[in-house]
């Protein structure tokens, strides 16, 4: 057991899997010698050699196109896209190829690839270092989408993703790489070492994909969130004094519907929170699922707190980012309903 921040936990997951399985290979832009712009792959090339951990040309479509081919050969590629904002050049390879290969070939070929990509805002990243494109991928049948919210989950989920024989998009909220961020940008960041989720086993363990976690039990309202927003929602619950049950979804596809439904049937109210823009965002799917499965238990309309339907602005970071004040207002609103 060691104390790790999220970067160290991800690095540890890669280290464990490179050590366990000779077919695991790790690559991407600046991933090899340098160890990644966020240090997620630091030391791995030195430990495992250049044919296991290596740098690639700046070509996201090429990175994922070659990753699929390696997967077809029998390797287990873990590719990094430097920012989720830059995953779009590889969209065709993900949607048309990785996601459909098993289906279209009648199970003859598949793409056991894991695509790591730092995502999310709150870092003054502006338009192309802040996006949360998960909803674009959850709409694609054949892809699994995972977003961890803490070091312990990040390692266990990443190991499960690498071992999974389906393509997994693994979004890492970079705002919480070093410590949980609750949206109070005016306060100093608390490092992960002050929180129990930073206690991470050094060796192998998995957290099954498709299982949500109850980040905070409560009885008044169900709060559905993932990534950085889990911490914002926890803060909003504490600050409003409303007994919210905060569910960290962890995996968006396949979704853990049972945990969601059980909670909403208990509380009768639901607030959905994500950084991504609202229209057709993953919150719309969550809202529809809750409405379909919990209609007779709902005591108020489902609320969504999300990024606005605008590109992510630089100067208006904190007006855009759904902070604890906005989440708190939604919590109060559903309680009045």
């Amino acid at each position: 057991m060691s104390t790790m921040n999220m970067i160290q936990a991800i690095n540890s997951a890669l280290d464990v899997m490179l050590g366990r399985d000779d077919n695991v290979v790790v690559f991407g832009e600046d991933v090899g010698y340098f160890g990644g712009v966020f240090r997620a792959t630091a030391g791995l090339q030195k430990k495992y050699g250049k044919t296991r951990v290596f740098d690639t040309p700046i070509a996201e479509g090429g990175i994922l196109g070659t990753a699929i081919g390696m997967g077809v050969y029998g390797l287990r590629p873990v590719a990094e896209i430097q920012f989720a904002d830059y995953i779009y050049p590889a969209f065709d390879q993900l949607v048309s190829e990785a996601a459909r290969l098993r289906y279209r070939s009648g199970g003859e070929f598949w793409a056991p690839i894991t695509v790591r990509a730092p995502c999310g805002g709150g870092i003054f990243g502006g338009q192309t270092h802040s996006q949360s494109p998960e909803g674009v991928f959850t709409h694609v049948c054949g892809l699994k989408t995972v977003i961890p919210s803490n070091p312990y989950d990040a390692k266990g989920l990443l190991i499960a993703a690498i071992e999974d024989d389906d393509p997994v998009i693994f979004f890492e909220p970079k705002r919480i790489y070093n410590g949980p961020f609750d949206g109070h940008h005016d306060r100093p960041l608390q490092p992960w070492s002050k929180f129990p989720q930073s206690e991470v086993p050094d060796g192998y363990y998995r957290i099954e994909l498709g299982k949500a976690a109850v980040a905070r039990p409560g009885s008044a309202v169900t709060v559905l969130a993932y990534g950085t927003m889990v911490h914002v929602c926890l803060a909003a619950v504490e600050e409003t004094g409303i007994d919210g049950e905060v569910i960290d979804l962890r995996t968006l596809v396949p979704i853990d519907l049972d945990t969601i439904v059980e909670s909403v049937k208990k509380t009768g109210r639901c607030v959905i929170v994500h950084e991504a823009t609202r229209t057709s965002g993953f919150g719309a799917e969550l809202s529809a699922l809750v409405q379909e499965n919990c209609f007779y238990h709902l005591e108020a309309p489902i609320e969504r707190v999300t990024g606005w339907d605008t590109p992510y602005p630089h100067a208006f970071e904190w007006q855009y980012f759904p902070g604890p004040a906005r989440v708190g207002r939604a919590l109060k609103k559903v309680m009045e309903g």
């Binding site: 290979v25 044919t51 296991r52 479509g61 090429g62 196109g65 070659t66 990753a67 699929i68 081919g69 390696m70 997967g71 077809v72 050969y73 029998g74 390797l75 590629p77 390879q93 190829e97």
Partner: peptide, 12 residues
Amino acid sequence: PQAVGWAMASAM
């Protein structure tokens, strides 16, 4: 590029 990735894997 998938063929290239397959070939890279073969070389690896």
